[in-house]
Design a protein around this nucleic acid. Structure first.
Lengths: 164, 164
DNA sequence: GCCTGATTGGTTGTGCACAATTTAATTGTG
DNA sequence: CACAATTAAATTGTGCACAACCAATCAGGC
């Protein structure tokens, strides 16, 4: 939809000195793909002591903040669906970090809540952010800026994927 | 480390003087995670016509550029190991887009090469970058800048993960 | 020739992401 | 009340990412 100005030369990909769209694009998707996996790798190392994976850590962050909430709400916070969350939550339950129980008010709903053990894990997790920030080798301002750019990008991409 | 107050669930993690590391960190990892999946979603839509997934598209980009190369080299370009590439390449081979054959010079090496059909797919793929760039709603300069920042970040993260 | 060690792909197992389908419970409407 | 539509999770199937392990091959020495 966005009538992004056609100022960009609609050249084929063989522009001699100008924009090589194929090349540029390759750089973007490579870069984002690589950054995502590199982040995942650092979290893997840092979280190993806690016995959590990266997505499991994200789930626990939400639960530490919100206390307790149904799977549906959890999925909205994380933008994940039940197909991803159900097995993940079962693993967290098997590890003794959360409990899942059907709501008495609405029997369709399953409420997830950290156990005492899961809540205690929070204290050990509080050293994680500092180590991650250190690993990025960026200062707080740069991180904030990068985060904001990524959020803007995500909103644009979601909107573009929607209207297809 | 906060005192062992197991009672209060919503312990305030804000440092009096400044940074709330936990909150900030959550924003970063949320944002990057979300951006990565949002990108994936857009590629899913755009690549559906070509019958390619996002990582398969990355592989084909390299092959279109390099012509033919062993799995090892392909993995270095993409930073992926054989556990990821082997089944992916088998799917591309089953789709008739690449062939895999053992090198005669070194029987340990498997060389991957696009078929005629795979090479022809390139022409249809050349519209992809433009659509992706449009979906980001960013101009070329901003994309280039973001890419560079992500590359710097990736190098820092890889280095940090290494020395653990 | 025969060993030893390193290199290259492949295989297996665990976990995440997402689409499509299924099951059960709730709500709306006659 | 009965019954269709809606909603919430779970399940199923495909594909990616990566660690750990295995098999075949090559290169060096003897």
């Amino acid at each position: 939809m966005t009538p992004t100005s056609t100022s960009a030369p609609a050249t084929d990909t063989a522009a001699p000195g100008g924009e090589n769209w194929l090349r540029l694009d390759r750089q973007i998707c490579f870069s984002l793909h690589a950054a995502s996996r590199a982040f995942n790798g650092v979290y893997r190392v840092v979280l190993k002591d806690l016995g959590l994976t990266y997505p499991q850590y994200l789930v626990m962050l939400v639960l530490w903040e919100e206390g307790e909430l149904p799977v549906k709400k959890l999925g909205e916070h994380l933008r994940l669906d039940s197909g991803t969350l159900s097995p993940l939550l079962k693993r967290l339950e098997a590890a003794g970090l959360v409990v899942r129980e059907r709501s008495a008010r609405d029997e369709r709903s399953v409420v997830v809540r950290p156990t005492r053990q899961g809540a205690e894990l929070r204290e050990r997790a509080e050293q994680v952010p500092r180590r991650i920030v250190a690993a990025t080798d960026l200062d707080v301002e740069e991180i904030r800026d990068l985060r904001d750019r990524l959020d803007v990008l995500t909103r644009a991409l979601d909107a573009a994927a929607e209207e297809s």
